[in-house]
């Protein structure tokens, strides 16, 4: 049987992510929507007359490169989680098979 709970929880996450997209449907960055909160805070600071005294050593030259690196970051994380949990899943299966084998062996001995 498939455990339904994680599926329900993941659906809830999807709803949380999609709701704002529906609420502000048709509005975009030009109208001031869906910008990053980090940048918004940066603007608030600049309003106080403060000027940043240090710039990033390197910045992604375009939005494309930036999304490439963000995807890379997520991929590194996903591959590690997938590998470890997949390994655990295999281990659990192997352990179960061993137990079944042992049971079969012991019943065979008894019948002999």
């Amino acid at each position: 049987m498939v455990d339904k709970k994680p599926i329900i929880l993941l659906c809830l996450v999807a709803i949380i992510a999609i709701t704002p997209l529906v609420m502000y449907s048709g509005l975009g960055e030009d109208e001031g929507y869906f910008g990053g909160s980090d940048d918004a805070a940066g603007e608030l600071i600049e309003e106080t007359g403060y000027e940043p005294w240090f710039n990033s050593l390197w910045e992604p030259p375009s939005g494309e490169i930036e999304s490439l690196l963000f995807a890379l970051q997520a991929a590194i994380g996903a591959i590690i989680i997938g590998y470890v949990l997949g390994y655990y899943q295999g281990q659990a299966k192997a352990r179960k098979r061993e137990e079944v084998d042992e049971q079969v062996m012991s019943t065979n001995k008894i019948s002999k």
Binding site: P20, F34, G35, S37, A40, F70, Q73, A74, G77
Partner: peptide, 18 residues
Amino acid sequence: AFIFILSSLKLPSVTGSC
């Protein structure tokens, strides 16, 4: 790895920013 993934996902919020 969990921190790597989650902190790369910029999600929209009901306040209209991400």
